[in-house]
Each structure stands twice: as structure tokens, then as C-alpha cells.
């Protein structure tokens, strides 16, 4: 029962990732693509979490944390680039 539910949710997550990939490739503006990348990271985290529940292992928790950190930093870098046109500033304007 639980196993069927978990596999079903993995299938739905795969469909969601496919829809996000459509937005990532097609997306009219760069902001759409950045948001699609952020949502893609969250979907991958959910997939890894459900998979680790499915095989009853705790070995993937570091993977979840690491994907979360990298997705966070990537989203911040893209947002900084879209807003200011530069990722890392030399000197902050005061």
C-alpha cells in the first residue's frame, strides 16, 4: 500500500519534472528559466527523499542537503545577474 503510494508519487514527480523541462527549454524570458531551475531543484530533492523512504536508507540525507544548498546559491546568482547584470561585484556601491 505504502509502496504503491510512494511509486505513484515518484511517477507524478517525473511528470512534473517533464513539465518543468518544457518551461526551461521554451521559456520566453530568462526569469521563467531561472524559476524553472529553482522548481527543478525542489522536485529533485523531493524525488531523492521519497526514494530514500522507499528503500529505507538514510544514506541520501547529505545528498538532499547538498542539492538544497547548491540550488539556493544558483538561484541567488541568477537573480543577482538578472537584476544588476553582474554576478560578483568588485566594490559595493555605498
Amino acid at each position: 500500500m505504502i509502496k504503491g503510494m510512494l511509486i505513484g508519487s515518484l511517477i507524478f514527480l517525473t511528470l512534473s519534472i517533464l513539465a518543468i523541462m518544457y518551461r526551461l527549454v521554451k521559456g520566453p524570458t530568462a526569469s521563467d528559466r531561472v524559476q524553472a531551475l529553482d522548481a527543478l531543484g525542489i522536485n529533485i530533492i523531493s524525488g531523492v527523499a521519497i526514494f530514500s523512504v522507499l528503500i529505507r536508507s538514510t544514506g541520501f540525507f547529505e545528498v538532499i542537503l547538498l542539492i538544497g544548498i547548491l540550488s539556493f546559491i544558483g538561484t541567488i546568482a541568477f537573480a543577482r545577474y538578472l537584476e544588476r547584470g553582474v554576478v560578483i561585484e568588485r566594490k559595493h556601491p555605498k
Partner: peptide
């Protein structure tokens, strides 16, 4: 992340 938040200097 520090580089992104603050500046390089």
C-alpha cells in the same frame, strides 16, 4: 555565497 552577498573587496 559570501562573494555573492558581499563584494570581493
Amino acid at each position: 555565497l559570501l562573494f555573492l552577498t558581499f563584494d570581493i573587496e
